[in-house]
Nucleic acid binder design. Structure first.
Lengths: 136, 136
DNA sequence: TATAATTCCTATCAATTTACTAGGATAATA
DNA sequence: TATTATCCTAGTAAATTGATAGGAATTATA
């Protein structure tokens, strides 16, 4: 299940991508427009900033803005920042790999093989989708 | 993230599919062979039986067995029984649909469109994979 | 028929995660 | 210096997960 954090995060950056210019948008504005709890959104935007997706400016006239052009922001990266691994099991994750305690041989594991296929197909979609695609 | 329930459930039916005949296999046997907690596995096999994937026999010589030929058991059904919806968000789920509270227009939602693609590709894999494929 | 072996079923529980809230610190602007 | 905004840490209620406990029901067999 996709977390609300990820869902809200995507909605927020789509909102930013739809802006005409790159002047900072306040959390409160996005919160209102997208019906997202202010404080929760605040923490989400913070992680997006800490992970290089957004920039921010403090004080009056401050807010959040995209650091790159929407067409250069791919959703695989956004998903990893917000949701964590794209794979459904850690043992097939490319960026968050962990071996299974209960698995003597990973390559012989039926679950592993199936989930590797699913990861590949999901990853292809996320990699080939940019923020620009989502905000049209 | 795939739950342990689903992971164990798949491992258990793959184990059953690998048996030479269809005589019932005891929970304890699968539990030992696949390193799965006995009581937890018991509850998993119970749900697989209640959902038409497995049959069971009580008493001495009893146990669980596949109701259909492995090549006729598709993983989409197994996933739905064990894990629930295949979609990452309820609003794109075919079998467990729920609309989003925060979404005025589902068709205009960027998250919806992206997650519908992911569901399609995952579903295709699960539908085209049978238990026989996994147990070879 | 008695006994042992097995699944069936309900209830419970600790740990973790999720979705959110609180409140002050910090920085920029006017 | 006052105001406006983000920054940051901490906390918390509810739900979910991954089990565990223990007896009831059923079946095979001696």
């Amino acid at each position: 299940m996709l977390s609300k954090k990820t869902k809200y995060g995507i909605k927020a950056i789509v909102y930013l991508a739809k802006q005409k210019d790159r002047t900072p948008v306040q959390i409160a504005t996005i919160s209102n427009e997208e019906s997202i709890s202010l404080k929760f959104l605040e923490s989400i935007l913070l992680t997006l900033r800490k992970n290089g997706v957004l920039g921010s400016k403090k004080g009056k006239g401050g807010g959040y803005y995209l650091l790159k052009d929407p067409k250069d922001i791919n959703m695989a990266n956004v998903m990893r920042v917000l949701e964590g691994p794209i794979a459904m099991v850690p043992c097939v994750s490319l960026n968050f790999y962990e071996r299974c305690d209960d698995c003597p041989d990973e390559n012989a594991c039926a679950v592993h093989g199936l989930m590797a296929q699913v990861r590949d197909s999901s990853l292809e979609i996320f990699r080939n989708t940019t923020l620009a695609d989502l905000s049209q």
